[in-house]
Amino acid sequence: MQYMLLLNETAEEFAKRNDPAEAEAYWGGWNAFIGAMAQAGIIVKGDGLQGPQTATTVRLRDGKRAVQDGPFADNKEQLGGYFVIEVPDLDAALAWAVRAPSASYASVEVRPVLPPMAPPSA
């Protein structure tokens, strides 16, 4: 089955990305995690995301576009990246998710990917 790991980050961790004193350790942790997944051959796709200060949220209401600076919800944790992985079951997905650096200070949400729709029956 395919699962998406939604990797949440805290503001402090996002800040480390551009802090010369912290960046190496920060990216080192993530690269090790991603490298291990790649080595196991389970990555379907995935990316890191730029920080929530770069987010723009848009809604269409009564035909009018409402554009808002910032992420959808103002949470302590924000989405920092995602990976879709191919593993046999939820337990295996959780075993990978818990190895993400952010699991120990923020959180990782694990969701099964919707299976492809069945073709209309003939």
Partner: peptide, 8 residues
């Protein structure tokens, strides 16, 4: 069923 829990 949907989340695919392991039956092991």
């Amino acid at each position: 069923k949907a989340a695919g829990l392991r039956f092991e």
